[in-house]
């Protein structure tokens, strides 16, 4: 069975790896997508399948024949980091880093769909990716910085309250 993984044609055997996550990690040795729960609860295995976000642990390998898969290993453009990767570095948006590949792909999919999301839209779109280290505020900042740097400014009518001073 053939897959296009990060732009490269790859062969996988679905009988050896029922889930896309196992196929990526065990057959293709792409360990960027992480095993956190194997039940679609944590988001550490998030990858893009034909552009859509999926939990690779819940995606059957056999259903992916001919599909284009993007993992964190395919996010950089050659030697140039994706702007989100650079922003995650700059804003310290990875603590232990285990959830980071999934967070990056979820963020990339969000910005592809909505280049200028509000902070509430970011929080909602990213809420399928758990981070037990509590890096969330910096992930929002990192995504916000990439969105803000990409041209037209967003309307932020629903911007969240500041932590300081009077609440709205």
């Amino acid at each position: 069975m053939k897959l296009s993984v990060n732009g490269t044609p790859r062969d996988v055997d679905p009988s050896r790896s029922p889930t896309l996550l196992a196929a990526l990690r065990d057959q293709l040795e792409l360990t960027g997508a992480k095993l956190g729960c194997d039940h679609g609860e944590c988001g550490a295995c998030t990858v893009r399948l034909n552009g859509d976000l999926v939990y690779a642990c819940l995606t059957l390998t056999a259903a992916c024949d001919g599909a284009a898969v993007q993992t964190v290993e395919g996010l950089a453009d050659g030697g140039t980091l994706h702007p989100l990767q650079q922003a995650f570095i700059t804003h310290d948006a990875a603590q232990c880093g285990y959830c980071t590949p999934g967070q990056l792909l979820a963020a990339a999919a969000l910005l592809d769909q909505r280049p200028h999301p509000t902070d509430d839209e970011i929080r909602t779109a990213m809420s399928g990716n758990l981070c037990r280290c509590g890096t969330y505020p910096k992930i929002v900042t990192a995504i916000r910085s990439v969105a803000d740097a990409s041209g037209a400014s967003a309307t932020r009518a629903d911007a969240p309250p500041s932590a300081t001073g009077d609440a709205p």
Partner: peptide
């Protein structure tokens, strides 16, 4: 920045599970 941030954002960081 964290000295290992690059490894973490590129998926190169190898954990025990990897």
């Amino acid at each position: 920045p964290r000295v290992d941030a690059f490894e973490k954002v590129t998926g190169r960081a190898r954990y025990t599970a990897d």
